[in-house]
C-alpha cells in the first residue's frame, strides 16, 4: 500500500521527523508519530474499522473526526468509550476495538409488551410470579 503520510505539502511544508510512538491495536503493534491521534495513526496504516455497532455488529470507523459523533469510540488501557479521534497516542498504549454487546432487552428475545414499565410493576411481577420479596431499595 502507498504511504498514507503526507510527508511533503506544497503550503504546509514538510513533516519534520516527528518522533515514532508505538502502541497496540487489538494486540497488534502499530507505529504512529508523536502528535497523532489513535484514529490518524491507525488510518496511516490503512485501518479504518475501529468498532462494530454494539447490537447489529456492523462495522464503524471515524465519521466527524473532531469528537462530536463518538463513532470512533474504543477502549484504551481498559477504559471504554474513549474517542480515537480526540486521544493522542502514547508509548505502550493498548487500544481495543469496540465489540458486539449482549442486548437482553431486544424485543426479539422478550415481547416488549410483557416487559414491566415501572419499578412497581417489576416488583409486583417478582412477588406474584416468583414468590420472591422485592429487594429493599
Amino acid at each position: 500500500m502507498r504511504n498514507r503520510r503526507i510527508e511533503e505539502h506544497p503550503v504546509l511544508g514538510s513533516l519534520r521527523n516527528r518522533k515514532a510512538v508505538s502502541f497496540t491495536f487489538d494486540g497488534k503493534t502499530c507505529e504512529g508519530r508523536e502528535g497523532d491521534t489513535i484514529a490518524s495513526a491507525l488510518l496511516a496504516h490503512g485501518i479504518r474499522q475501529l468498532r462494530v455497532h454494539e447490537e447489529s455488529g456492523r462495522p464503524r470507523g471515524i465519521y466527524c473526526n473532531i469528537g462530536h459523533c463518538f463513532e470512533c469510540r474504543v477502549t484504551v488501557d481498559g477504559k471504554a468509550g474513549v474517542r480515537a479521534c480526540m486521544t493522542e497516542i502514547r508509548e505502550g498504549m493498548a487500544v481495543e476495538s469496540g465489540k458486539v454487546l449482549p442486548s437482553p432487552l431486544n424485543s426479539s428475545v422478550f415481547e416488549a409488551d410483557e416487559m414491566p414499565r415501572t419499578y412497581a410493576e417489576f416488583a409486583g411481577k417478582q412477588k406474584g410470579d416468583n414468590k420472591k420479596e422485592a429487594p429493599d431499595a
Binding site: 498514507r4 503520510r5 503526507i6 510527508e7 505539502h9 504546509l12 513533516l15 502528535g35 497523532d36 491521534t37 484514529a39 490518524s40 488510518l43 496511516a44 479504518r48 474499522q49 475501529l50 455497532h53 456492523r58 462495522p59 464503524r60 470507523g61 471515524i62 465519521y63 466527524c64 473526526n65 473532531i66 479521534c85
Partner: peptide
C-alpha cells in the same frame, strides 16, 4: 455508516492537521 465514509470536515482535519 460504512468505514471510509466521513464528514468533509473530518477529511480536512485528517489531511491538514494529522497529515494522513
Amino acid at each position: 455508516t460504512l468505514p471510509g465514509v466521513m464528514s468533509i470536515g473530518a477529511a480536512q482535519v485528517m489531511t491538514n492537521v494529522h497529515r494522513v
